[in-house]
Nucleic acid binder design. Sequence first.
DNA 1: GCAAAAGTGTTACAATTACACCCATGT
DNA 2: ACATGGGTGTAATTGTAACACTTTTGC
Lengths: 224, 224
Amino acid sequence: MQQSIKLSVDAVVFGYESGTISVLLIKRKYEPFIGEWAIPGGFVLDHESLEQAVERELKEETGIEIDYLEQLYTFGNPKRDPRSRVVSVAYFGLIKPSTFKILASTDAEEAQWFKINELPSLSFDHDHILESAISRLRSKITYEPIGFELLDNKFPFSDLEKLYTTLLGRPIDRRNFRKKILSLNVLDELDEKISKGSGRPANLFKFNHKRYFALKKKGIIFEI
Amino acid sequence: MQQSIKLSVDAVVFGYESGTISVLLIKRKYEPFIGEWAIPGGFVLDHESLEQAVERELKEETGIEIDYLEQLYTFGNPKRDPRSRVVSVAYFGLIKPSTFKILASTDAEEAQWFKINELPSLSFDHDHILESAISRLRSKITYEPIGFELLDNKFPFSDLEKLYTTLLGRPIDRRNFRKKILSLNVLDELDEKISKGSGRPANLFKFNHKRYFALKKKGIIFEI
DNA sequence: GCAAAAGTGTTACAATTACACCCATGT
DNA sequence: ACATGGGTGTAATTGTAACACTTTTGC
């Protein structure tokens, strides 16, 4: 068999901080679309798994190490790359604010965070990939606790609430939300408070992975 | 760039008839795993889209034309094919009983239906792919009306009910189920009855795609 | 003492569940 | 007339949604 299809991976990485969701993009160094913005990614090496390829490319191009990674979709339109046939397996990644802050401060010209409502236009079919990723994030947050992957290990309840209102694009009743989340019993309340300058300091919470997986095994599912 | 990864597609096709779900498998004609059962599929040609490749392979290997097709997942473990690096984009397909019956009757040795609780062991990582597909089918049926793709255009309500009890693996209250489905207002009751030999003849229903897509646009989602 | 964010309960309403008998046909 | 599968309503329970005031801190 003769086949000249190339295989690449791309990663849409989301970060969250104080009410805004951002995506990590890179400025292309090579043709085609040199100088334009694109989702980080690249060709898969013969010996490595797809996940390894994503992680390698992310590190090479943006210096980042990802906290959460899942496969999104494989884009295989024959014309998606103008030069040759390239099929791309797109991934969906999340990072915690601590990582976000480090990266945001290194004023690298090649990699940059963009708020998801201030996106530049992208090369290839990357607009399309990004759209899929955003819609996946929005819907997934309602039935799996991936939101916690966008927050630090310890967080005040209001951060979680703000994240949800941001992603869902509508206000949430604070009391009902808190009741519902706490009733799942997957958060541990810590003996620690955080103050944000003004106002009453908030208790910190921690997501309890063990308890969540135990619930999941029993078939009890997260739902907002 | 030098890359020697090959790209294939595989399709897990489900069919349903009178209380059992079946999967279409083929007996391999070539090495490796010659003579063993596998999911239909093959290499993607340079010029064709992934969906075209799936449809072509399905037709070549099983003679089938699919009623519903969606991408499942891309399997890229470097060792999944013992001979060389092959990444496979797996698809998930559904056919209606009319198609099912035609195929089931042609006693082709190469392609055969297997009930999902009487599966043979499969070559490559196809057990794994099949597992993913089954779990996708089971969960997807609860939030999207793909069940209708497993029934004929006209069907008695009891067929739908039986399909759900089969897939969910538990009994459903007939009255509640009917109430819920009918309240979605996506079924048209026809002026036609069907008799299954004994018992009261059943009214036939038809899934109304237009009405469903209209609902979906408004953000109202299917849920069982 | 006031501005700012955190924390907390109750009631009305909607959705889900449980449950059993009659109906239309074939033999 | 009986066996077989189809069709139907109501009440109890549970879950969801709406809603406003008090508490703790910084300035």
